[in-house]
Computed example of a mutant assay.
Amino acid sequence: MTTALAQGATAPLTAVRVTVEVTARQRLDVVAVLLTSAGRVRSDADLIRRQSPRGPGVLHRPATGSVPQAITVDTWALPRDVTRVLVAANLADPRATFAGAEPTATVRDAATGRVITTFTPPRLQRETALLVVEVHRRGAEWKLRAVGRGYPDGLAGLAAEFGASAEEPNTAADPRRAPAFTPAAVPPPMPAAPPRGTLDKGRAKLVEDGSVALVKQGRPLPGPVRLAVGWAPARPGHGVDLDVSCLAFDARRERLDTAWFMKRSVFDGAVRHLGELPADSPDAEALDLDLAALPTEVCGLVLVVNSFSGQRFTEVHGTYFRLLDPATGDELVRYDLPRTDPHPGLILAKLVRHLSGEWVLTALATSVDAKTARGMVQPASRLL
């Protein structure tokens, strides 16, 4: 049985990807606003709506026939500096109000269509825009809150509360231009997350938190890839003993399996740990990944490195990972660790399967006080 939320109530999200449908007796425009912990948008791109339907981890779905407008939020794909996603609605008719036509939000598991909860705000008055629900992060958990706060001056009033202004487009200059959503000058917006690229322009060099979709010309890479890791001792003559592992998670961030030097093959060989590479190899250890062969329940892979002997990463320099085409040896993606910390564990990268089915590789640099892959499970799940 589906439980309806009361205004102000909070419920845990029971799915990684959720779709929020908003319906009413009047024609609506549904929007999403991405906010940082400062309660501010970062840039114009943080307003997701019909005119600009895609953002990092957020997708606007237009109404078609009996299917209502909706916002889909993929919590795994949201940038780390985004802590709240607001789902709002404003009336398409500027002369109308929500009085007597309160909208209903239906929150569904995006993967199955199962209804998680619903929310209808109390009776409204002269409001022309409404902040309906909010998806927000508390620690490592994502939750849903029923808001139902109205604004009498439409989207402009809603935007102003979060330090932004909604400007009308200059249709005389360019009738195709969507209305702007510009951060206010004071306080300044937080910097945007590094952009997500593709492999269309060849080799990608990542920065920390930078991402690349493993697609070329709109298609997934045609075959398996190799994820190789390398490092060197900080002081010549001092050996370094590190172990590379790959943790696999499902849509609920529960660990499914781990590929490591004691378990070389998981998921019928879709992930294969190659162990220590020969001395003449430029890399230290590597894994072969056949992403297309992974079971559908595998939604995320996390690359971790540990020192069982307790060596710290301050004893290592030049740590990197690179993604290769194992058939040709061509380097597709490279990431050089920007810093080292005095911990024996390191989360180096994550691979996340998005709503579209594409896999996105993100470079990380998260230190963990753990000597084995087992100690990395919870910290890794929180980064998905």
Results as ranks from 00 to 15, higher is better:
G269Y: 02
G39V: 06
L214V: 07
D243K: 01
A292W: 02
G202E: 04
S281C: 08
V186C: 03
A77W: 01
P179L: 06
L28I: 11
V229H: 00
G57Y: 10
D46P: 06
V368G: 09
P94H: 04
R312V: 07
T182M: 09
E315C: 13
M376E: 14
V215S: 14
R17Y: 05
K263W: 00
D250Q: 01
L289G: 00
E297H: 15
L214N: 02
G65M: 08
A185E: 10
T182D: 10
L277C: 02
L144K: 07
D153E: 12
T372G: 03
G150P: 02
R95D: 08
A11E: 13
S367G: 15
G57W: 04
A232Q: 15
T83P: 06
L227Y: 01
S281W: 05
S37D: 13
S211T: 04
G357H: 11
A363Y: 14
R382N: 09
R353Y: 09
F119D: 03
G55V: 04
N90Q: 07
R25A: 13
P191N: 13
E141T: 12
E297K: 12
P183T: 08
L158W: 09
P183A: 10
E285P: 01
T296C: 02
A363I: 04
V302Q: 01
A96D: 14
P179G: 11
G113N: 08
G157K: 10
L287R: 00
A193I: 03
T319R: 13
A327M: 07
L355R: 12
S165E: 12
